[in-house]
């Protein structure tokens, strides 16, 4: 926002703007640090990422190796969170599961938002029939349960980790689209855009080099706030048997074990562990996202 709003001017003006920028950044960081929940969220996220990245160094077990002598055991010194129906260490599986679950959520959110931004930019900036069409399309997506769209698309392109990301991206762009479109609609009336247009700058250039940076705040917040939804959706779909292949440990495929009444009723640890991992991670991202929004975009609280 800071950089772009400084119109064509002398070096002094730019320097001023830069100074303003750094002090603003400092102010924001201070504000963020003051938000205890947001800092807690960030800390949890960092811990989760660390655990996912360094999983092999944090556990002596193989996430896939069965040990039929140790099935459905409760927490112990060897198995901190207990074991599942094949005697595999739950702590280990949560670590390895985090890799796939977080990867899916983050990449889905990034791609979905990229689609939303492009569509929103074109719709908001160009307006007209294109805009109308895109708005109708997004309404179409909003008027029936996302789960059904996801399932139908999933049936269409087939299962698999990459396809799951693709499906989330195809079906998840509408929220960002609406926000970005609204921003573009208001921004295109602003003076600096009019000025660029008057200079004969190409419309694509204006869209992506002039307006986009000022919309990035909204987008970054959107990307963050969408991640929890995808974590939960991945788990939900895997729970219904539509997600990633069952043999890949993810938080969702681990939860699938709760479909067995035996596990559901008499071995709660098996589903409590991945369930709590999901909830904690989602809670952390939500707190972090809220904090981020408070700091970066005070209008939207």
């Amino acid at each position: 926002m800071d950089k772009v709003n400084a119109p064509v001017g002398g070096h002094q003006a730019i320097a001023n703007a830069r100074r303003l920028g750094t002090s603003l950044r400092k102010k924001r960081i201070r504000k963020f640090v003051g938000n205890k929940l947001a800092v807690f969220g960030l800390a949890v996220i960092v811990v989760f990422l660390f655990m996912a990245l360094f999983a092999p160094f944090l556990t002596p077990y193989d996430p896939l190796e069965p040990n039929f002598g140790q099935t459905l055991k409760g927490p112990s010194a060897e198995h901190w969170f207990g074991t599942d129906s094949m005697g595999r260490d739950l702590y280990t599986r949560v670590l390895y599961g985090a890799r796939v679950s977080i990867l899916i959520a983050v990449s889905s959110s990034l791609i979905a938002n990229a689609i939303g931004v492009v569509m929103g930019a074109f719709g908001g900036y160009f307006g007209g029939w294109l805009d109308k069409g895109l708005v109708r399309l997004s309404e179409l997506f909003a008027c029936f349960p996302q789960l059904i769209i996801v399932l139908v698309v999933m049936a269409f392109i087939g299962p698999g980790t990459f396809n799951l990301i693709l499906v989330f991206a195809i079906t998840g762009w509408t929220g960002t689209f609406r926000l970005v479109r609204a921003e573009y609609m208001s921004k295109k009336e602003e003076t600096y855009v009019k000025a660029c247009e008057a200079f004969g700058m190409s419309r694509l250039k204006i869209m992506f080099f002039q307006i986009l940076p000022s919309v990035m705040t909204t987008v970054i917040i959107q990307v963050t706030m969408n991640i929890p939804g995808y974590v939960m959706s991945e788990a939900g779909l895997s729970f219904l048997g539509f997600g990633v292949p069952m043999s890949t440990p993810t938080w969702g495929t681990m939860l699938n074990a709760a479909k067995s009444m035996k596990v559901l009723l008499y071995a709660p640890g098996v589903w409590l562990v991945p369930g709590c991992a999901i909830s904690l991670f989602v809670l952390a991202v939500n707190f972090f996202g809220d904090g981020l929004r408070d700091v970066m975009d005070p209008r939207q609280q």
């Binding site: 729970f239 939860l255 909830s279 809670l283």
Partner: peptide, 8 residues
């Protein structure tokens, strides 16, 4: 409520 999936 925002962070715990309904199936969990």
């Amino acid at each position: 409520g925002n962070s715990v999936p309904e199936y969990f």
